[in-house]
Simulated assay, not measured.
Amino acid sequence: MTTNTLKIGELASHAACPVETIRYYEREGLLPPAARSQGNYRLYGHEHVERLQFIRHCRSLDMTLDEVRSLLQFRDLPEENCAEVNTLLDRHIEHVADRIAELKALQLQLKQLRKQCRTAQAAKDCGILQGLANMEDEAPANLGSHGGGCH
């Protein structure tokens, strides 16, 4: 088959993406609906491959679905001014910088915790286990949804 008539499994294989992810992107409106064969199979074209690759590249940069959706809107209107694209990317860069700071604080906390038990011993005497039991909510405040709370 050519890329003009890919079934969903072939598209998934071509894009190294699970079939369920493709269906999810369709439900979210990120991928346009596929044409249907007489047997009711989804049929994807080259534009689906390119769009899915674009989405996957954005997601690999840790962009949210809303960010991807915004970028796709600009991609679909190539004559529009890209100032909003620049703004979106600037905000995402700030988010990444904030996340790096959070991870560095987390790393420091883990290193401090690791220093509480330098030798193998009985678990009842383990400084790490004791430290974890006594930490309560001492996690760095800026960890957001990634730490410090119940999961």
Rank of each mutant, 00 (worst) to 15 (best):
A15C: 15
T21L: 07
P18E: 10
E47M: 09
D66E: 15
R51H: 06
C58F: 06
R75G: 00
L30V: 03
E67P: 00
L43K: 08
R59T: 10
R75K: 13
E47N: 13
E67N: 08
V68T: 15
Y44A: 04
T64G: 09
L65W: 01
E67H: 08
E47Q: 14
L72Q: 03
Y25S: 05
L65M: 12
V19F: 00
A16G: 12
E47F: 04
C58P: 04
Q38E: 15
E20W: 06
T64N: 08
H48A: 11
H48F: 07
A15T: 15
I55S: 00
R56A: 10
S60F: 08
L65D: 07
R42D: 07
Q53G: 08
Q73I: 08
R69M: 08
T21E: 03
R27S: 15
C17M: 15
I55Y: 02
E28P: 00
A35R: 15
R23E: 05
L61K: 13
R69L: 05
N40H: 13
V19W: 04
N40K: 13
L43M: 13
R51E: 01
L61G: 09
R59S: 10
G45M: 07
L61R: 13
R42G: 06
G39F: 03
C58S: 11
E26P: 00
H46P: 10
M63H: 05
R36L: 12
F74S: 02
R69F: 06
V49F: 02
C58H: 03
G45N: 08
A15R: 02
L30C: 04
P18C: 06
G45W: 00
G39M: 10
L30G: 05
H46V: 13
R23T: 07
H48P: 05
Q38P: 11
A35M: 12
A16E: 14
R51T: 07
F74I: 05
L52A: 09
L43G: 01
R56L: 12
H57L: 12
D66H: 12
I22V: 14
E20Q: 14
I22P: 03
N40W: 11
H14R: 14
L71H: 02
I22F: 01
G39S: 15
E28R: 15
H48K: 10
R56T: 12
R56F: 02
T64A: 11
P33H: 10
T21Q: 08
C17L: 15
G39R: 11
C17S: 11
S60R: 14
R23Y: 05
Y44K: 05
M63I: 09
E28K: 15
R75C: 00
G45K: 05
L65A: 05
N40D: 14
H48T: 08
H48C: 07
R42P: 02
R23A: 07
G45Q: 11
E28A: 14
G39V: 08
I55F: 02
V49N: 03
